[in-house]
Amino acid sequence: MPYAHLSITVPEDVWLSELSQEYPQIRFRIHAATANDETGVARLELLGADVEAVCEQLETYEAVTGVVVTDRDPQRCRLQIETTVPVLLNAIQTAGIPLDFPLELSDGVLELETTVPQAKLSTLGDTLDSFGISYTVERIQQETESEEPLLTDRQEWLLQEAVEQGYYDTPRRITLVELAEEAGIAKSTCSEILHRAEGQVLKEFLDGDADQHPRLSVTAD
């Protein structure tokens, strides 16, 4: 099945487009979302400077009917929102495209990466066109067994979270328990995902290092 990366421009009349363009330095990370014809619900994480101002302005939009902040600090805000204009999500769901979370949006553009049959990609393009949503195809690649990604989406996301939160700093700025709480998963699950991801990265690094030093050998007395 082909892998596709699309940059989708959120329609100008949607509050999320206006808000993200007013604060282009803010990363809008969507962790979960669902919608029907009338309403949408999403769990968002806002990252960057001025998140307090963004959260306050978000509540002023008429189309945003509910906001519940679950975590907040000067550089990050986590919240759940309800909206009456889930245009973009409706378009993607109508095309039958499964969403791999988290999704990233900034400055009015949503980055969508997915692996689906070619027919589904064609349907997505037709559906976005019918909704009047513009997009750019950044990359389409036919995946083969040899082209499988090193990490799963979930492993890559959690590993990135661990790096950003300082789990690998010396000394650590966050514990495994705290990281699991931030990610919304059990400590044991967090530990297992990180362990598998770390193993894959280390194996890839060592394999690559061995390729660069083909004469390297280990002997025992």
Results as ranks from 00 to 15, higher is better:
Thr170Gly: 09
Gln155Leu: 04
Glu204Lys: 12
Gln141Val: 05
Gly199Glu: 11
Val137Tyr: 02
Glu143Met: 09
Val116Ser: 06
Thr123Met: 03
Thr175Asp: 12
Glu161Gln: 15
Gly108Glu: 05
Leu202Gln: 11
Leu202Thr: 10
Val109Trp: 02
Tyr167Asn: 11
Leu121Gln: 01
Glu192Gln: 14
Glu192Asn: 15
Ser130Leu: 13
Gly184Arg: 09
Arg139Trp: 00
Ser146His: 09
Thr123His: 04
Phe131His: 07
Ser191His: 14
Glu113Thr: 08
Asp126Cys: 00
Glu164Met: 10
Gln118Ile: 09
Leu151Thr: 06
Asp107Lys: 01
Leu179Gly: 01
Gly184Ile: 12
Gln118Pro: 05
Gly199His: 15
Glu143Leu: 15
Thr170Pro: 14
Tyr167Trp: 14
Thr144Trp: 08
Leu150Tyr: 06
Leu158Asp: 10
Leu112Cys: 06
Val109Ser: 00
Cys190Asp: 12
Ile185Leu: 10
Tyr168Trp: 04
Tyr135Ala: 00
Leu159Tyr: 08
Thr114Asn: 01
Glu143Gly: 03
Ala162Val: 08
Leu121Met: 09
Gly132Leu: 03
Gly184Gln: 10
Ala186His: 14
Arg172Gln: 15
Glu138Gly: 03
Ile174Arg: 08
Asp107Thr: 07
Ile193Cys: 07
Asp126Lys: 09
Leu112Arg: 00
Leu176Ser: 10
Val201Pro: 06
Leu176Asn: 11
Ala197Thr: 00
Arg154Cys: 09
Glu192Thr: 13
Asp153Met: 04
Thr127Gly: 04
Glu181Met: 13
Thr175Ile: 04
Leu158Ile: 13
Gly125His: 00
Val163Leu: 10
Val177Leu: 08
Glu143Val: 10
Glu147Gln: 04
Glu204Phe: 13
Arg173Phe: 03
Ile133Ala: 08
Leu159His: 06
Gly166Met: 13
Glu147Phe: 02
Gly184Ser: 06
Thr114Trp: 03
Glu147Ser: 14
Val163Trp: 06
Glu156Val: 02
Lys187Thr: 00
Gly132Ser: 05
Arg139Asn: 05
Lys187Leu: 01
Ala119Arg: 14
Leu121Ile: 12
Leu202His: 12
Arg173Val: 01
Glu161Trp: 03
Glu192Ser: 12
